[in-house]
C-alpha cells in the first residue's frame, strides 16, 4: 500500500498525473529562479566584496538605457512564464470542475467528525468509500454543521463541503488500492480524526461488495418511506396536481416559477424546495408547503431527492 516514509504521494486518479506534471513544471521554475538568485547573491557578494574599510561601490551610470532594458526584461520574462502557468492551471481546474455526463453520483454528508457516504444504490458507509476503478464518480456533498473539506491526496483533489448548499467534485480512480481520505478544512476538536479510506476496487469486486452483507449498517428510512412518513404524499400525489405539483419526471426538467423565472430542477433546487419552500414558488400554486428546515437531516433530504429523482415520467404518467 505505501512505503514507510514516502516523499511523493501515489497517483491513483486520471487527473493526478496532470496535476503532478504542472506541479513539476512550476517546481522547476521555482527551483531555477531560487537557485539563480542564490548563486547570483553569493557570486556578486564575493566577487565584489569590500577589500578595504573605506571602499565604496562604483556609482552606476546615470539613467542608462541598459538599465531600462534590464528592468523590462525581468518584468516581462516572469510575466510570460506566469501566464503559461495560469493557462495550464485553468485547464486542469476546469477539467476538475466539470464532471463527465456519465459519472456515477455518490452523496457525501460531512458532520463533526465523520464522513457519511451514500451510494446510488442506497448503500451507506461511514468514513469509508468503496468505488469501482475506471469509472467517473461524481460526489454531491453537503455538511450538517460547519465547513469541512473532502480531500483524497492520491487523487490530488479536494473540495470544501458547506452547510446549506451542495458542492460537487468528481474523479476517476485508475489504480486499485486503499487511499487516505482527509478532512482538510479545520472543523473543530476532532478535525484530525475526521478521515478514513477510499477503497478502489475492480468493478466486479465492487458489485460483489455492494451485494454483500451490510453489516454494521444503521437502520434508516428510505426516500419512499420518508415521503409517506413526512406526509409529503398528502399534497404531492401521483394522480392529481390539485394541491401541489406532481413530482413525477420533475428531476432535470425546467420549472416555471411564479415570478416568471425558469429554473432547472436539479438536486440543489429540490433541496431548497424542501428546506425553504418559500424561496421559489412554482407558478400556479399557493405557497402552502411547510418548511422542513431543522426537521430532516441532510441524509434524509438526500434520500428524498433520490426518491424524487427515481419518479420517472413513463410509469407515473401511465397511471
Amino acid at each position: 500500500m505505501m512505503q514507510d516514509a514516502p516523499l511523493f504521494p501515489e497517483q491513483a486518479s486520471t487527473i493526478a498525473s496532470q496535476i503532478d506534471n504542472l506541479f513539476f513544471f512550476a517546481l522547476g521554475i521555482a527551483a531555477f529562479f531560487s537557485i539563480l538568485i542564490a548563486l547570483l547573491i553569493v557570486y556578486l557578494g564575493v566577487r565584489y566584496r569590500r577589500r578595504h574599510a573605506a571602499q565604496t561601490g562604483e556609482a552606476p551610470p546615470h539613467g542608462s538605457k541598459a538599465q531600462t532594458v534590464l528592468e523590462i526584461t525581468w518584468s516581462v520574462i516572469p510575466f510570460l512564464i506566469l501566464m503559461v502557468m495560469f493557462i495550464w492551471g485553468v485547464k486542469i481546474y476546469f477539467t476538475a470542475a466539470r464532471p463527465p455526463a456519465d459519472a456515477i453520483q455518490f452523496y457525501v454528508v460531512g458532520k463533526q467528525w465523520m464522513w457519511k457516504i451514500q451510494h446510488p444504490e442506497g448503500r451507506r458507509e461511514i468514513n469509508e468509500m468503496h468505488v469501482p476503478v475506471g469509472r467517473p464518480i461524481k460526489l454531491l456533498m453537503t455538511s450538517e454543521d460547519v465547513i469541512h473539506s473532502f480531500f483524497v491526496p492520491a487523487f490530488r483533489i479536494k473540495q470544501d463541503v458547506l452547510p446549506g448548499r451542495y458542492t460537487t467534485m468528481w474523479f476517476q480512480a485508475d489504480k486499485v488500492g486503499t487511499y487516505h481520505l482527509f478532512c482538510s478544512q479545520y472543523c473543530g476538536a476532532e478535525h484530525a480524526k475526521m478521515g478514513g479510506w477510499v477503497v478502489v476496487m475492480e468493478p466486479h469486486e465492487y458489485q460483489a461488495w455492494l451485494a454483500g452483507e451490510k453489516s454494521g449498517q444503521a437502520e434508516f428510512m428510505t426516500g419512499a418511506e420518508l415521503f409517506a412518513a413526512r406526509a409529503c404524499n398528502t399534497c404531492h400525489r401521483p394522480d392529481t396536481s390539485a394541491r401541489a405539483p406532481i413530482l413525477t419526471g420533475l428531476f432535470g426538467r425546467q420549472v416555471g416559477l411564479q415570478d416568471g423565472r425558469r429554473v432547472a430542477a436539479d438536486e440543489a433546487y429540490i433541496r431548497e424546495s424542501i428546506i425553504e419552500p418559500q424561496a421559489k414558488i412554482v407558478s400556479g400554486y399557493q405557497p402552502i408547503m411547510p418548511t422542513f428546515k431543522g426537521q430532516l437531516t441532510e441524509e434524509d433530504v438526500i434520500e428524498l431527492i433520490n426518491y424524487i429523482k427515481g419518479l420517472k415520467a413513463p410509469e407515473g404518467v401511465a397511471r
Binding site: L22, F86, G89, I92, R156
Partner: peptide, 8 residues
C-alpha cells in the same frame, strides 16, 4: 495561485 496545483 495556479488553479490546478491549488486543488491538491
Amino acid at each position: 495561485a495556479t488553479l490546478g496545483i491549488d486543488l491538491h
